[in-house]
Design a protein around this nucleic acid. Structure first.
Lengths: 195, 195
DNA sequence: ACAATAACTGAACAGTTGTTCAGAAAAAAG
DNA sequence: CTTTTTTCTGAACAACTGTTCAGTTATTGT
C-alpha cells in the first residue's frame, strides 16, 4: 500500500497537531510515542515526518503557536480606560482564553523542561512579553494611586498564578457558570491589588 | 563483581529516592530511565529492585511521602487565634515549606498523570485533605464576618495556586529575602479575602 | 490518455526501555 | 574460621524508541 484514498495534506497536518496536543497534555511529551500519534490520526509513523522534521519541533510549534495566539488575542482587547478597568478586562480575558484551550495551556506550562535550550529561550521570552503587559497595568495603577503593590513583578506573577489555577478545577458542567467564575476571581484580584 | 565494598541498605535506599526525586523533577518521570537513576547512585539498574518493586511505586512513594510530610508539618503548626491569624500562619507555612522542597512540590503537581488510577486516587485524597484544612480557616473567617468570600472552595484553590506560584521564580540568591516574600504574599492574600 | 507530483506504507536501523535472575562477593552471625 | 544472609553484578529478555527511505498509490496538471 501507499497513498490512501482521500489523503490530503491540509487535513492530515492539523489532525497530527490536534492528536499530539491532546496526547502530550494527557500523558506528557516523553510518554507519548510518534507511533501513538500516528495511530490516532490513522496513519503510519513515517507519514508524520512529512509534517514535522522531528518530535521536538512538534512540541515546540504547539507551544510557540499557543503563546502567539495568546499574545495576539490579548493585543486585540481594547486597552482604553483606567488601570482598574484594564485589570478587570485582563482577568476576564485570561480566564476565558485559558479555559477554552486547557490542553495547550497545560503543555505550555508543563513541558518546558522537554524543550531544547534554544527552544526554551524562545518560549520563555514570549511568556515574559505577556507578563510584562500585565505588569504595565499594575504599574499604571500604582502611579495613579489606585493600586497598592510593594512589588509589581511579584504581584503580576501572583495574579497570573491565581488565575491559572482555574484550569485545575473548572468543569463546564459544574456548579458555576463562566460569568460567576469570572466575578469571583475578579473580586479577589481587585481586592488583592487595590489600595 | 557482586556486592561492593561499603554497600549498605540504609544508605542506598535513601540515595535512590533522592536521585529519583531530582531526576524526575528535572526531566519528568517518563523521560528518566531506571538506568539513569542507578548511574546517579553508582549502582547497576537491577539493584534498584531491592528497594522498589517497580518504577511506578518509586514515583508513588515519593509523592505520597511528600503529601504526608506536608500534612504532618501543617498539623504541627498551632491553630490558636483568630481566622486572620490562622490564615497568616498558613501563608507563611505554605510558602516556606514549598520553597524548602521545590523538587518534591514540582513532582507532586506535575506527575499526577503518570500515576496509575488507584495511586492517583490516593494522592488526590491527600491533597483534598490539605485543602480542606485551609478552607476551614476561610469558613471560620466568613462566619466571624472578617472575610468576605462568595465561594470558600474557589477561594481556597485560588490562594493555594497563588502561593504555589512562588516556586516558579524564587531564588535564594535573588532580590528578596524569605521574610519579604512572605510579607508581600500575605499582603495580597489578606486583602483578597478580607471584608 | 499520460506524466508529474504529493501522500503515504512498510520495513528496517541502531539504540533504549523496565524488569528478571543466577551467581558472586561482602558483611554479619555463629 | 565457617556458615548464612544481605547486597549487588552482568547478562539477558522482549518490547518499544525516533527516524530514514525506497517503493507504491492517489491525485493533479497537461
Amino acid at each position: 500500500m501507499a497513498r490512501t484514498q482521500g489523503s490530503h495534506s491540509d487535513i492530515t497536518g492539523p489532525r497530527i497537531r490536534e492528536a499530539a496536543l491532546r496526547l502530550f497534555a494527557q500523558h506528557g511529551y516523553a510518554a507519548v510515542s510518534m507511533r501513538q500519534i500516528a495511530k490516532e490520526v490513522g496513519v503510519q509513523a513515517g507519514a508524520l515526518y512529512n509534517y514535522t522534521p522531528d518530535k521536538q519541533s512538534l512540541l515546540f510549534n504547539l507551544m510557540a503557536g499557543h503563546m502567539a495566539d495568546l499574545q495576539a488575542a490579548w493585543d486585540a482587547v481594547p486597552q482604553a480606560g483606567s488601570a482598574l478597568e484594564r485589570l478587570r478586562a485582563f482577568t476576564g480575558f485570561h480566564i476565558r482564553f485559558h479555559l477554552e484551550r486547557p490542553d495547550a495551556v497545560f503543555i505550555a506550562y508543563m513541558e518546558l523542561r522537554n524543550l531544547t535550550e534554544e527552544n526554551f529561550t524562545v518560549i520563555e521570552s514570549l511568556r515574559r512579553d505577556y507578563e510584562n503587559g500585565v505588569e504595565g497595568i499594575l504599574k499604571q495603577g500604582v502611579e495613579q494611586g489606585v493600586f497598592t503593590i510593594p512589588d509589581t513583578k511579584i504581584a503580576t506573577l501572583a495574579v497570573i498564578a491565581m488565575l491559572n489555577g482555574v484550569n485545575t478545577w473548572y468543569r463546564s458542567e459544574g456548579r458555576l457558570s463562566l460569568d460567576e467564575v469570572e466575578r469571583v476571581y475578579w473580586g479577589m484580584v481587585q481586592k488583592a491589588v487595590s489600595t
